[in-house]
Design a protein around this nucleic acid. Structure first.
Lengths: 337, 337
DNA sequence: ACTGGCACTCCATAGTTACGAGTGCCAAGT
DNA sequence: ACTTGGCACTCGTAACTATGGAGTGCCAGT
C-alpha cells in the first residue's frame, strides 16, 4: 500500500526534518532531493502518508513532520546503521584503552558516547547476577563492625559494612573469610544463595551468630544490588534541544536509577542495537525522547547494556552506529582485562 | 556611610527579589515592609545604594535588583543562617542513617541536599590524603594480573588492576599482601610513599619485579586519586531557573570533575559555611551562579567539602542552614561507622 | 530630613496588519 | 490511472503600533 516513492518521500522527510528541525513542505522536498516529480505529486503522497499516520502537520498549512510511527518505519525499513569513520574508531579505541579499572572504563565509556552522539549517554555497570565471585574479603573496621568486600570477575567491587552481634576476634574473621572464599570463589552470583545455606553449620558455635550476620548481609547485597548501577553523562547536550516543559522531566528521569534501568530495556542479544521511539518508552516524561541501546559483554555473554537518549528527532543511523561501535569496544576492553 | 535604614532597605530588596523574582520598586517596598517612611524617601536611599553599587536597574524606570556586591553585603552583615526546622532535622537524620556504605552515604547526602534546597547539590568524597589505610588486598584476577584494593578508615574503597611482569604464584601474592598490610595498616596516606621505599628489599629476588609493579601502581593511585571524586544531583532543579544561555554552561561545568572541585573551594574550617557569589566564582560560565559550601569531617579533621549551586538570586540564609546541617550530620554518620 | 506632587521614561501587552509558506482540490494533460 | 499546473484558502510568524502602568528623578514645601 506504500509504493517505493512514498517510502522515499518518508525517508526524505525524516532526513530533512532531522537536519533542519523545521516542518518540511512539498516544494522544499523536490528541491533538495531529486525525486523527478512535481510538488503536487508529492503533496498527494504526503496526504496518503498522513492518513496512514506516518507524518503529521503541526498546524494546517504547515509542512509535515514524522510521527513516532513514521520514525519507526524509517528505522526498521528505510535506513541502515551508519558505520563510524576510521578516525572515529581509532579515537574510541585509544580513549577506552587508557582505562585502568572498571569505574574508569564505565566513566570513559559514558563520556565518550555522549561526546560522539552529542546526546545523553547511559551506561549500566556489568550485571552482578551474570558475573561470578572472584574473591571475598572481610576487614574488621571497628569493634563489632566488619567490612564485606565482594570482587567480581568483571572487576566490579561491592562493599557493605556489617554489624556483628558480638565482638569478633581477628582469627574468627580470618576463619570466616577463608570459609567464604573456598565456598564461593568461582561461583556465579546466582548460585550463591544455594551454596551458603549450610555454611553456618561449618563454623564453631561461638562464631555462628557472626557468621549468620555476615551471610544475611551478603544475601541482602545480592538482592539489593540486583537493581544495577547506572551512570549517565552529557546532560548538557539536552540544552541544545528546545525542550522546556519536557526538559525538567527528562533530567528528573535521568537521576532515577530505576527509570534509567528500565530505559535501557531488557537485554536482547549482545550488540544488537534496539531503538525505542517516543511513546514506545515506558516512562511518562520520556514520551518525547528516543532511546538507542545495545548490550555489551564478553563473547556471547551479555553483561549489561548501554545507550543514548535524545529527542525523537534524532539521527538514528548515526547514533545506532556509534552505540554499536562503543558497545563492541567496551566488550573487547572487558575481555582483555 | 550607609545608615541603618539604608541597610534595612537593601535587606528588604534582597528578600523581596529572591521571593518574587521581580525587580522591586519603592512603593512595593513600603507596602510589604513597614519601614515608617514614604516611597520618596526610599527612592533617595535607593539612589545612594545604586551609586555605591549594591543594587541596579535592569532598565531605566524599572525596580531595582541586587548586584553581586549587594548580595555579598547581605550575606556578610544583614542576615543570619536560618536553622532548619525540627522536622527537617529529623528527616535528615533518618534519611542518612539508613546508609550502609560510603557510596550510599555520599549518594544519599547529595540527593538529600538537592531536595532540601531545591538546587543542585555537590558532594566531594572524603579525601584520600587525609585518610589512613585500613586494609590492603591483592586478588589475582588472571594470569599476570592482580587487583589491588585499598580500604580507608572512612570506608572508601579504591581499586586498580595491576599487570605483573611475571606470572605470580598464589603464595607470592599472599606473601606480598601480608607484607603490605603489616607495613601500611594504620598509616596515613600521605606517609605511604616513605614507608614503602625499602619494601622491595624485603621480598625474595624472584618476587621483586612483581613487588615493584604493585608498588608503582600503588603510588600512582595515590597521586591520581588525589584529584578527588565529586558527585552532584538535582540538575533538574536548574530547569526552574530561566537560564537559557547559561544553562548549558552550568551543566557542562557540573560534568567536569575539575571544575566541580574548584567550585567547592579550598577547605576552610570544618562546618564553616562559605559563600561565593556570581563573579566571585573562578569558573567562566558560572558567573551568574552562587555556591554555598561547607567542609565536613570527623571531629576537628575536615575530610572533604559539600555544597549547593544555584542562581545568585538565592535564599542564602535557608541554603546556608541546610548546608551546615547536612555537613554536620554527614560528619556524625562517618564518625559512627 | 522627609514628603507629596509631577512630568517623564520605557517595558510589557495586546491588537493590527502584511506576508508567505504550505496545503487541498480540481481540471487538464500524458 | 497517474501526474501536473493553477488557484483559492489557511494560518502562523514577524513587524509595527498604540496603550497602560509601574517606576523613577527632581523639586518645592513642610
Amino acid at each position: 500500500m506504500l509504493d517505493d516513492r512514498k517510502l522515499a518521500v518518508l525517508r526524505a522527510i525524516v532526513e530533512d526534518y532531522v537536519s533542519t528541525n523545521e516542518p518540511v513542505g512539498s516544494k522544499a522536498l523536490v528541491d533538495r532531493h531529486n525525486l523527478g516529480v512535481s510538488p503536487a505529486t508529492i503533496r498527494n503522497d504526503m496526504a496518503v502518508l498522513e492518513e496512514q499516520g506516518y507524518i503529521q502537520q503541526p498546524h494546517t498549512s504547515a509542512g509535515r513532520i514524522p510521527t513516532d510511527k513514521g520514525y519507526r518505519l524509517f528505522v526498521d525499513r528505510l535506513s541502515t546503521i551508519k558505520p563510524l569513520s576510521k578516525a572515529e574508531r581509532r579515537a574510541i579505541e585509544t580513549f577506552l584503552s587508557g582505562a585502568y579499572d572498571l569505574d574508569d572504563v564505565v566513566g570513559r565509556t559514558v563520556r565518550l558516547l555522549a561526546q560522539l552522539t552529542r546526546q545523553v549517554a547511559v551506561v549500566q555497570y556489568p550485571s552482578l547476577t551474570r558475573s561470578y565471585v572472584r574473591h571475598v574479603e572481610l576487614v574488621p573496621v571497628a569493634t563489632g563492625r566488619v567490612l564485606l568486600v565482594l570482587i567480581t570477575n568483571t572487576g566490579r567491587v561491592e562493599q557493605r559494612v556489617i554489624e556483628t552481634p558480638a565482638e569478633l576476634s581477628d582469627e574468627s574473621v580470618g576463619h570466616l573469610r577463608a570459609l567464604l572464599n573456598t565456598c564461593l570463589s568461582g561461583l556465579a552470583f546466582g548460585d550463591v544463595p544455594g551454596a551458603v545455606s549450610d555454611l553456618p553449620e561449618k563454623v564453631s558455635p561461638e562464631e555462628r551468630p557472626a557468621a549468620a550476620a555476615v551471610l544475611s548481609v551478603l544475601l541482602e547485597t545480592l538482592v539489593e544490588k540486583h537493581e544495577e548501577k547506572v551512570v549517565f553523562a552529557g546532560a548538557a547536550n539536552l540544552a541544545a534541544v528546545d525542550f522546556s516543559r519536557t526538559f525538567r522531566d527528562v533530567l528528573e528521569a535521568l537521576e532515577e536509577q530505576v527509570v534509567l534501568m528500565r530505559l535501557l530495556g531488557e537485554s536482547a542479544d549482545s550488540s544488537t542495537v534496539t531503538v525505542r521511539i517516543g511513546t514506545e518508552n515506558p516512562d511518562e516524561g520520556l514520551r518525547s525522547t528516543s532511546v538507542v541501546a545495545a548490550g555489551y559483554g564478553v563473547g556471547d555473554l551479555t553483561l549489561a547494556r548501554l545507550g543514548v537518549l535524545g529527542p525523537t528527532r534524532m539521527d538514528y543511523p548515526g547514533t545506532m552506529g556509534a552505540v554499536r561501535a562503543v558497545a563492541r569496544y567496551v566488550g573487547q576492553i572487558l575481555a582483555g582485562s
